[in-house]
C-alpha cells in the first residue's frame, strides 16, 4: 500500500487563496491529508468547499489565486451527479481512458464490487440514480487512486439509499485504501464515515476534529452526540435547531 512508502502527508495545501472576480473564496487555507486518511469537509453553502476540492483536483481554470498545492499523481473525483457518458455502456464508462490489456477485466471486477455484476452492457439511463452513483464510484476506484475527492456524492440520493451507500463506501475504502476528502452537508454522514472532520468558514478551516469510531455502543453514542453538537455549532446551528448569532459561531471556532 502507498501508506508504507512515504511517511509524510499525501496532500499538502499551504496558504491557498482562490477568488472569483474580486470575491475571496479561500483565504490562505492550510490542509494536510495523510495517506489513507478519510476526511469529511463540512461548511455552510457557499463557504468554498467545492472550490477547495476543485483546486486540489486541478479543475479550477476560471479561478485566480495563489498558494502551494502538493497532490498525488492518481486522483479520482466523484461528483454529485454521476457524470456517466450517456453514449457509452456501463463497462466503457468505468474503464474510460484506462490502459492495459486487463482494463476490461478490472472494470468488470469494479462493477461487481459495487453490486452491479452482469449490468456491464446496460446504458446509463437504464439505471436508477443510486445505481448510477455506484457506477461512478466503481469508475473512480478502478483507477486505484491515492486520493479520492467526492463532492456531495450522495446529495441527490434518498435517505435509505444514502445509508446503504455509506456501508458500500466504507467497505470499498477499506479495500482500496485511498485517502478520501468527502464534501458533505450531512453532519451524520461525516460522523459515520470520516476519521477526521474539518469545517470550512470564511475561506479557512475553523475546526479540525478527530472522529474515532468506538467499539462500545454507549461510547459511540456519546461521541456522536457530542461531535454532532459541536459541528452544528460551527455550522451556525444551535442545539435547539435555531440559527446562532455570528458572534456565537465565531466563539465556537
Amino acid at each position: 500500500m502507498s501508506g508504507t512508502m512515504h511517511t509524510g502527508p499525501i496532500v499538502r495545501v499551504r496558504n491557498l487563496v482562490r477568488r472569483f472576480t474580486v470575491k475571496g473564496v479561500l483565504n490562505g487555507l492550510d490542509l494536510d491529508i495523510a495517506p489513507g486518511e478519510f476526511i469529511a469537509l463540512l461548511g455552510r453553502s457557499g463557504s468554498g468547499k467545492s472550490t477547495l476540492l476543485r483546486a486540489i483536483a486541478d479543475l479550477d481554470h476560471e479561478a485566480t489565486g495563489s498558494g502551494d498545492l502538493f497532490v498525488p499523481e492518481r486522483i479520482s473525483v466523484v461528483f454529485q451527479d454521476s457524470r456517466l457518458l450517456p453514449w457509452r455502456r456501463l463497462i466503457d464508462n468505468v474503464i474510460l481512458g484506462l490502459r492495459g490489456s486487463d482494463a476490461r477485466e478490472r472494470g468488470l471486477k469494479a462493477l461487481a464490487e459495487v453490486g452491479l455484476a452482469g449490468r456491464e452492457t446496460a446504458w446509463p439511463h437504464e439505471l436508477s440514480g443510486g445505481e448510477q452513483q455506484r457506477v461512478a464510484l466503481a469508475r473512480s476506484l478502478v483507477r486505484d487512486p491515492e486520493l479520492l475527492l467526492a463532492d456531495e456524492p450522495f446529495g441527490a440520493l434518498d435517505a435509505l439509499t444514502r445509508i446503504k451507500m455509506h456501508g458500500l463506501v466504507k467497505r470499498l475504502v477499506s479495500i482500496h485504501n485511498p485517502a478520501v476528502l468527502l464534501v458533505t452537508h450531512d453532519v451524520d454522514e461525516a460522523i459515520a464515515l470520516a476519521d477526521r472532520i474539518i469545517v470550512l468558514d470564511q475561506g479557512v478551516i475553523v475546526a479540525d476534529l478527530p472522529n474515532a469510531h468506538h467499539d462500545d455502543d454507549i461510547e459511540q453514542l456519546e461521541h456522536t452526540a457530542a461531535t454532532r453538537r459541536l459541528l452544528l455549532r460551527h455550522l451556525g446551528v444551535g442545539h435547539d435547531g435555531r440559527a446562532l448569532a455570528p458572534e456565537a459561531v465565531d466563539a465556537a471556532h
Binding site: 483536483a57 486541478d58 479543475l59 486522483i75 479520482s76 473525483v77 461528483f79 451527479d81 457524470r83 457518458l85 474510460l96 481512458g97 483507477r143
Partner: peptide, 16 residues
C-alpha cells in the same frame, strides 16, 4: 462542460 471536466479528472489523452 461537465463531461469535459470528467475527462480532465481522468487525465485522458486528447485523442481519447
Amino acid at each position: 462542460l461537465r463531461f469535459v471536466e470528467l475527462a480532465e479528472t481522468m487525465r485522458i489523452s486528447y485523442l481519447e
